[in-house]
Design a protein around this nucleic acid. Structure first.
Lengths: 350, 350
DNA sequence: GACTCCCCTGACAAGGTTGTCAGAGCGCAT
DNA sequence: ATGCGCTCTGACAACCTTGTCAGGGGAGTC
């Protein structure tokens, strides 16, 4: 660490206010307000005087004060409550929300919840205490009923990725069950009969839906579900790697794997590589991830489109902000099967 | 898309204010304020009355109004201006900032600039108009002098990833030059004499520093820099893939590649795989990326630690907010050489 | 019983802004 | 000269809070 020699420490000069601008320009505060907001009815020379004062004082309107006074009360900020900003799913979604919000000059407050119900509530409360204009939430836990008060106060809510419980509200979801079903059918098409399920925390609704899709496909194919081939509650790469290794080491090991989530897929690949089985055991992961097509074998996935989800959620939110008070909507985005190699490996004759 | 039948549309009930709580509890507004802020000097029965009213009305303090009135004027929110939230470097950094801010119950406003100087200014202005308590900025473009006014107004600024130009302020950087130098030495140690440089936009300061490190290492090794082995201005995976293919197809092709950035590394890998050269041409990338250790060969990198940068930047910022008015500091975080395979490939005898 | 002292409480103003409205100033017709 | 209508402007209140301060009331002391 190095230290710069600073120029003499300057005492802070607090930000200029409307009042000071008005004083310098020799007009009333209201006139300054008019100029700042581009309202008509100010003579050009006063406009000029105000402009000069504004730039001389480097005046910045105080948006909070303005929102406080304005009849609409809009703060031009929305809150996003996501699972984990460091996870590409969340961050890509956030970025898409940002792009839509940006067109309307709306700012974004954001935070991660990490599957922590309490944290979800804390964040929502912090956001509403700042009077955000709307909220986009990837909900966690069993009950979002506590949000009814926000809706009644006129703050639109859009849920993404997971459906809210105990509350009727707009939401944007992937078709998790259909996607999982596709994955299993795809593996079955390649000839597999022993297909394992590697699942995320069983209490997460999307994990439940994916598991339901897995079960349904087995049923449709007349394959007997084997409890020994189902593992739940894998939430990290290491969990998943360990579970995969255990599965493949057991008697009657599966010949194909369905990994129900990003990190689980990566854990499975890690284990497969360690066992040298990556070209012999088939694998399909739910949710695409960067570099999936540079691995050997390339990894087949059921792709969600987090950017599309973010965009859709933001657009829905802004429709509400624009006054749409219609019934609440549920957008189900289809998933895409992306065959790249790992999912097309045929079972070995034994 | 499906539509739910909503319960009868309820007219919005605007949020309750302090005044209403006071009226319901039969006390003055100030007393409610005291209860809300946990100030001493209210009899237990009045506290109870207020508590009851608060929960009956579902009262939420208006943080903006509160900040406006409070002497400190703190909004308990900071702004982060990052390169691209969808890029893991930015999002991991953001997440680290969030974790530090969270301990202090400070919220985060964020936005992406995409190398757009104008956007940087717009975002900073939007944030300061909301009176954020501080800013963390990954600066873009040639001049951050316009931020002097913010510093003078008492808003602490911390720069990350890149040094600000034309302004003396705290910053947290990776030691780009040393890292690049290490990479080239590492390749030279493996016996390479024709080492190519694949660089990001040449106007980005970090790219310049990495190029400087590359040049210095060649010099130290007595290797003649070959202009044909230097490519600048690669900013996407496709750019990098094309450039790599061109380099390797030319006469006197390099036997080793130094990719100066994430996406460039991935582009180089793509090209190497297409040419079937991934096991014959050495590669070291600047900046680690997920799955680098699952590729074949595993990819050697010079790792930065974006989480550490985010944490350090946030801690620096909060020190300033806690009143530290010392000289501005420059934190230079070391990079780590992570040998995984691709950087240890020996040159082929020809 | 008079007096101090302390604890609670509320009235009032202020923080930076905008909505309302009345008044000032002007041109023009009568 | 008077009246009318118009445009431009500022005084004032209000948005929701909190800081300040003075007053009311009770307990404790002499």
């Amino acid at each position: 660490m190095t230290e710069h020699a600073d120029p003499a420490i300057t005492p802070y000069r607090p930000r200029a206010t409307l009042r000071e601008v008005a004083a310098m320009a020799g007009v009333s505060m209201k006139t300054v307000s008019r100029v700042v907001n581009g309202e008509a009815g100010v003579t050009p020379q006063k406009v000029d005087a105000v402009r000069v004062a504004i730039s001389r004082l480097d005046y910045r309107p105080n948006v909070s004060a303005s929102a406080l006074r304005r009849s609409s009360g809009r703060t031009a900020a929305i809150g996003t409550v996501l699972e984990d900003l460091a996870n590409p799913f969340s961050s890509v979604l956030l970025r898409a929300v940002e792009d839509v919000a940006n067109e309307r000059r709306v700012l974004i407050l954001t935070g991660s919840v990490d599957e922590d119900q309490q944290r979800e509530r804390t964040l929502v409360r912090a956001f509403t205490e700042r009077r955000v204009d709307g909220l986009i939430i990837a909900p966690v836990g069993e009950d979002q009923g506590y949000l009814r008060a926000e809706m009644e106060a006129g703050t639109p809510l859009v849920f993404v990725d997971r459906q809210p419980q105990g509350l009727l509200a707009d939401c944007v979801l992937s078709d998790n069950e259909a996607g999982a079903r596709d994955a299993v059918h795809h593996l079955a098409d390649a000839g597999h009969r022993r297909i394992a399920y590697l699942g995320d925390l069983a209490l997460i609704p999307t994990a439940q839906q994916r598991f339901a899709g897995y079960q349904r496909a087995l049923l449709e194919r007349g394959l007997a579900p084997d409890p020994a081939h189902v593992v739940h509650d894998l939430h990290t790469v290491d969990d998943a790697a360990r579970a995969t290794a255990a599965l493949l080491g057991a008697a009657d090991a599966p010949t194909a794997l369905f990994a129900s989530q990003n990190l689980v897929t990566i854990g499975a690949i890690t284990a497969l590589q360690e066992l040298g089985l990556e070209h012999r055991v088939a694998l399909i992961g739910f949710d695409d991830f960067p570099l999936a097509d540079l691995l050997q074998p390339r990894v087949s996935v059921i792709a969600q489109d987090p950017a599309a989800m973010g965009r859709a959620a933001a657009e829905l939110l802004f429709q509400r902000l624009d006054g749409d008070r219609g019934r609440s909507r549920r957008l189900l985005l289809p998933t895409t099967t992306v065959p790249r190699g790992s999912g097309e490996i045929a079972p070995e004759a034994r």
